[in-house]
Design a protein around this nucleic acid. Structure first.
Lengths: 248, 248
DNA sequence: TAGCAAAACGTCTTAATGACACTTAGTAAT
DNA sequence: ATTACTAAGTGTCATTAAGACGTTTTGCTA
């Protein structure tokens, strides 16, 4: 990553981002891969993150990390919380790696985790940073990660699940035009269980946060699905009112 | 506060606690008062907090602050999030005060906020630290606070409201034995609106998180209220199942 | 033109919510 | 002792939401 030399790093505080994406089939996370090969099967993957600068807020730092890595801006981003275990950087494999990238590899760093939701289809990896070192991994395949990143990832996944029950944030993972089947599949992927198709549709339509478009799928070898778009206006209204009953 | 000289402070990270209490009438917050008198009507109040040590986690730091201030342990405590605005310590009145308590008053500090729920009745202020400098303030009276503490307070209040909708955390604010009227009053105080008495009772009883005791109020000039206790076991079960429908 | 595959659609039963008013148990005052 | 006062405690009905379940439709393909 390109660091501006004028700016002063805060060597005790970092941000890490759990970036979720949905490819209309599976829920995925964006992980970066260490340059040096490691023996442990999955520990070479980690969440994208960076130390913060002293002239930026945590939100700004997270936005910067996201931009540098994916080239995306204006994506859904929310603070998850701070992680401060004393041994969070002290796994032996991690230390070796840290020594190659940090000036003070033994300094204590607490990290503030963020979770982000991106629409995988509107996503064009920025070749320089991304293609070589980062990749989308199905969430089922995420077992162990570097540092305390697995704990952070699990915490993010849980929060995503919980939040979906009360707020329609799932739309951030879909393209502007989508079918109800895709939305359905997304919800099933996140909550991790089957949801009745008809009841799901009824609920979404009653909540009035989707608008039916005069456009259908073409070229599919079955009855084409209607496209819908997200109803921003009603969503905002629901956000304010708190919509208690959004559960399944 | 007594600082052990052996330990090394992390001068860039602090914790601040929003401690809620309920005196069976009103919802209150524990605020500390600066030693030096200030002209601004309320800005002399701030949230209890402290820089962290490098050999403690954030949770441990928050527990320490709480213990030092209130003498209480084992109270409900949850991380709220990190606050990192660049100007969060730069109000002029705050700077003067900071200079009197910090070695590097101009260093950037990000703070991790916690919110805590305590039962005001089982609360015995530790005379040394508490009585002189801290006091319970009704939440309506909390207008401006030092630093960015008002923002933190509001965020905590909002989270308390939101969380109450989906988890019965309110019990942490009540004594072991309480009446349904007290519980009712507490909920009204937190969500800030009237709740129908009968519907409220029905819901609590159906959720099966309260257990009726064979004990009544005595000495009240009206029909005495029955005491209840919190049903830990069912609460844990509900926590796991996620209990979608806890709204009003 | 027959077959295929996923989309679209409705009903019924059960459970939860919200609105609403009177009776009861104890204290305090006369 | 009777009366008055105060907050506690209780039930029903109408409306709305949830959960379970199978058949028809549309467009493509062979």
């Amino acid at each position: 990553m390109k660091h501006n030399n004028q700016r002063k790093l805060n060597t005790g505080i970092s941000v890490d981002c759990v970036i979720f994406g949905f490819d209309l089939e599976e829920l995925k996370v964006l992980l970066i891969q260490r340059k040096t090969a490691q023996k442990a099967p999955d520990s070479r993957f980690s969440l994208p993150g960076d130390l913060i600068y002293n002239d930026e807020t945590l939100d700004e730092a997270a936005i910067r990390v996201l931009k540098e890595l994916t080239g995306l801006e204006n994506i859904y981003l929310e603070q998850l919380g701070a992680f401060s275990a004393l041994d969070r950087l002290s796994k032996i494999e991690d230390k070796i790696w840290l020594e190659s990238i940090r000036e003070q590899p033994n300094e204590r760093v607490i990290t503030i985790a963020y979770f982000a939701l991106v629409n995988l289809n509107s996503f064009h990896p920025s070749p320089a940073n991304f293609a070589t070192s980062a990749s989308w991994r199905p969430i089922q395949n995420v077992t162990s990660l570097a540092f305390d990143h697995h704990e952070i990832f699990e915490s993010a996944h849980q929060q995503l699940k919980a939040k979906l029950q009360t707020q329609p944030i799932g739309f951030n993972l879909l393209p502007d035009k989508f079918t109800l089947s895709q939305l359905h599949k997304l919800y099933e992927a996140i909550v991790g269980k089957e949801l009745d198709k008809r009841n799901f549709r009824r609920k979404m339509i009653k909540l009035d946060i989707v608008k039916k478009l005069e456009e259908k799928q073409v070229g599919v070898p079955h009855k084409p699905s209607n496209f819908y778009e997200f109803n921003q206006k009603n969503y905002q209204k629901l956000l304010k009112e708190g919509f208690d009953n959004f559960g399944f």
